[in-house]
Simulated assay, not measured.
Amino acid sequence: MDQTAGTNRTALTEFILLGLVESEKLQSLVFVLFLFAYMVTVGGNLSVLTAILVEPKLHTPMYFFLGNLSVLDVGCITVIVPPMVGRLLFHKRTISYDACLSQLFFFHLLGGTDCFLLTAMAYDRFLAICRPLTYSTHMSQEVQRILVAMSWACAFTNAMTHTTAVSTLNFCGPSEVNHFYYDLPQLFQISCSSTQLNELVLFVTGLILAGTPVVLIIISYIHVAAAVLQIRSVEGRKKAFSTCGSHLTVVCLFYGTGIFNYMRLGSEKASDKDKGVGLVNTVINPMLNPLIYSLRNSDVQGVLWRILVGR
């Protein structure tokens, strides 16, 4: 710990994560479950990504975005779970200040990219169903790359903004965080300096990263629903709703937990409820995404089956 200049306060150079459970027996169970969830998530997302890469039939805009989503899911869970599993394995709860900021930056970089990418996927579905005649023009490979690049650029700006803002805060105790990873709400609660500006920045960026995409997704699917209902073929309507249903399920899970986590700052202290929401947001969502898309998509199922049986 370092003495801060001009004050009697002591600046923290490391924090203590209390984790999900305190019992050593339960910690062993948590270790096994999280390691299993990580392996399933990485394996599932890489399987979907492999299917998209090896099957020419899947070289379409929808699967291009889905492949990028799989990469993001692997990245998101890798930022959180391996450090947590390592702490459980070596019975270590502390994390350095620099490691905390690094985790915060990459978590918001990948999560923010996810926000914009889900919006791009909704736009793709809108063009495919409502503007089929001009779809190839409006969703060319160049447009796809631009949308992905813009998603990364906007998310990078957001992550850098929050990381820089947090680095200006003073942390002088207590050092214990009642969670299993570090995020903005938890750091605000243990800061000994004013966090009003940080909370305002989080609220404004939350409106941009969550509010704007949600509005655009809703508008897109209103048009999609109106177009699908005009399809005379029952099989055609079922296929369209099935494709859109997978995306909407992922959107609801992602934005639901994200809005609950960030849009209620100052309402209450950290609790097990926060841990549950964080668990869904960082572990369960990335694990479910490949299952949601592959189980509801016959094309992906067919390719994965051919890969598994060696044909």
Rank of each mutant, 00 (worst) to 15 (best):
Q141E: 00
Q196C: 05
K269Y: 12
C76E: 04
N281C: 14
A270M: 13
P56D: 05
R237T: 01
L109C: 01
T168G: 00
I307S: 01
T94M: 03
D98Q: 11
N285E: 02
A120D: 08
V166P: 02
G173E: 08
I292F: 07
G111V: 06
F260E: 11
R306T: 05
E24W: 14
L248P: 04
L200C: 03
S194E: 04
I217L: 07
R296N: 15
F106N: 14
F15M: 02
F126P: 03
P185I: 06
S298L: 14
S151C: 12
L187D: 00
A128E: 02
A99M: 15
M84V: 06
V224T: 01
I292S: 07
H91P: 04
Y255R: 01
T94G: 05
Y181E: 05
P82R: 10
V148M: 05
V85R: 03
E199D: 03
L202H: 01
V54S: 09
T205F: 11
I218C: 12
M39K: 00
R296H: 13
I219N: 13
L117P: 00
L127W: 07
F260D: 11
T161V: 14
I292D: 04
M287F: 15
V40W: 08
T119C: 14
N8A: 12
M62I: 02
A155F: 10
M1Q: 06
S242D: 05
T163L: 03
C76K: 11
